[in-house]
Design a protein around this nucleic acid. Structure first.
Lengths: 358, 358
DNA sequence: AGGAACGTTGACAGCGCTACCAGCTAAGAC
DNA sequence: GTCTTAGCTGGTAGCGCTGTCAACGTTCCT
């Protein structure tokens, strides 16, 4: 008969109920839907729980209720500053609530993503945040079949699985190039690393803008699958210069690369922006502080994470947003590194071009 | 009698057992301790599980076994590059194994940390990774009482709760200052932000080194509780210069500040290192790429995370390390920004001073 | 006053898995 | 040949909580 499992002396819901003088189920309701209790019992259960230091057993709750209070998050990288901002937004928005975040790293592999998705979905998460719109067909099918709200973040696309928060990398890149055109630049190089889908779309935007102006030239492109870094920015730029010495601007797929380009210019005594203009992407904090200050395309990463988690939690709790797709837009923050006319003026946020798709 | 909960059509362990022609408990054992089964049954269960696409229900497992396979990680910040490296190490080491990572952010508050600790511990994690050695008395007591392995990371201290992996921030700072002394610097400023316990200990190391040399001066210190940033590095340095125009070096509590100082020097046409030497801390990737290249104290952040998770998992599985405290050391990476004699030479990693406490 | 409607409470069973222990078989010891 | 030991397998009984539904008491309506 009975076994001798260590009882562990833990406070269970039954103890709380007993002290409060109610049935266990009433105590249970107190934690899930306090409004359903009479004011008197609510107070009794609350004080009993506090007195005993009750902490619910999540495993038991998950088993009995057939759902968890876990929000699963799939991102491609932990190193990339971009994602740490997004994550901070997600964690901030979930803080204090009942949901806990389960984070996993796909390492930019959609197969890895598929594997993780299968794993997560089996645990019936309350909600899911996935990066981007490029999933395997299998992943896509699992997402469609999942019975929890899902938010896709980082970019926009034609067919959201459920909800979607991002901006158009394509349009953002076009806006950056338009800005360079406005400064009189014509031979604009492109420097990109990693070449994940979002960088690829920035490249597409660059290519289309250049083609529209009749200025596209294959030789202006330097890309690599290598993960991005400041040092790599310098290296790629050196490659580009070796091949095309008379470029007048460089559009970098991210800010690390841009900083690397800036340092390489300094190393070669190339004056920025007089000889070469530089534009980055993301507007990380250091861009405003560099000498010269660096132009970049500002993206709302923290806000994206925050909005994604907030929207997801709302949806989990049954309040679906009236607008399931959210375009957070971007802004070209014009700084010294690309303002040909007034290169020597004060470091200033002299103007901007903002964009919002559709 | 019976209720009508949605059976969800999920594959349970019982289904696998039935298909394999064994009892559920045998199937259960297959997943926990395959060696205990005969080879024949092992193969049968394995193929049955694969055929049905069985995924274990973690909640049921946790409830029945009274323990989870979750490693809880408490770190103070998600933004800080330092922690993203550590985290990457932790995630890499846990990948492919049975343990999942539950991450939480204390925001540099030990009260917040205490709250999270209480929350996590109630769910009986398999293991725990906490940052630093400055916990509240209450937290400390909870950690001591916890019945799972615990690793403290980021620094070393006299009384580990259990295991500990880090290095001496105090000695690392002293080594940085010793390097500057060796370059002939005497009026060495200190720039620090956030002033969390580890930055504080770097400051302590700086102070002690300066006092040892009879060169300490309260006015050489600029610190703030504000979170760190590149821009802030410039601002703090400007403060310092305003007060003490004739300093000959700056030791920055981290690399972001150092980069800000470098930009501020450039803005003011101060030649680095001829007029002022700069030393940072952590050796982030961009330090080697800056112009001039920036000296920094290299810390093994990725390795720290990796070792912490590896050691923790080993301990969880009963293989306690023979050496529970691991000093990962540091290295002063000497670069142009602090090499007075050969400021114009090639960017080189000309030499280094390594340190390991005790 | 009778009945409907509502708000509140509790009994019961079981979510899917594993700890414990007993039993069974085959191999080795004497 | 019997006894012991080891290796493997299975039965039983929950782990702590919640879904379902019935029952209760109260209020409000006609």
């Amino acid at each position: 008969m009975g076994r001798k499992r260590t009882k562990s002396g833990k406070i269970r819901l039954a103890e709380v109920a007993e002290l409060a003088g109610v049935s266990p189920i009433t105590a249970s309701r107190f934690f899930r839907n306090p409004e359903a209790l009479s004011v008197a019992k609510r107070a009794r259960v609350e004080s009993a729980a506090r007195e005993l230091g009750y902490v619910p057993n999540l495993a038991a709750r998950a088993l009995a209720s057939q759902r968890t209070e876990v929000i699963a998050v799939l991102i491609p990288s932990l190193t990339n500053n971009v994602f740490s901002d997004v994550l901070r937004g997600i964690y901030d928005a979930s803080e204090g609530g009942r949901y806990s975040i389960q984070l996993s790293n796909t390492r930019y592999s959609i197969l890895q993503e598929e594997r993780l998705l299968r794993l997560f979905l089996a645990q019936k998460p309350a909600g899911l945040i996935v990066t981007g719109i490029d999933q395997t067909a299998e992943s896509r099918a699992m997402l469609e079949a999942a019975d929890c709200p899902i938010v896709q973040i980082m970019e926009l696309g034609p067919a959201p699985v459920d909800m979607m928060i991002g901006f158009s990398h394509y349009e953002a890149a076009r806006a950056a190039i338009a800005h360079l055109f406005a400064q009189g630049c014509r031979r604009i190089g492109f420097v990109g690393a990693r070449m994940d889908p979002r960088v690829q779309r920035r490249l597409d935007g660059y290519v289309s803008a250049m083609k529209d102006a009749g200025l596209f030239d294959q030789h202006l492109l330097v890309t690599t699958a290598t993960p991005t870094s400041v040092t790599l920015g310098g290296t790629l730029f050196a490659d580009l210069l070796g091949r095309e010495p008379n470029i007048d601007a460089v559009f970098c797929a991210n800010d690390d690369l841009a900083l690397g380009v800036l340092f390489e210019c300094r190393r070669r005594d190339i004056i920025v922006p007089d000889q070469i203009a530089i534009v980055g992407f993301n507007d990380l904090e250091f861009m405003a502080s560099a000498v010269p200050t660096l132009t970049s395309v500002r993206t709302n990463r923290y806000e994206m994470g925050r909005a994604a988690a907030t929207m997801l939690i709302e949806a989990i709790e049954g309040r679906r947003p009236e607008q399931p797709v959210l375009d957070l837009g971007f802004k070209v923050i014009e700084r010294q590194s690309s303002l040909a006319q007034r290169a020597d003026s004060q470091p200033a946020l002299s103007g901007m071009a903002a964009g919002r798709t559709k």
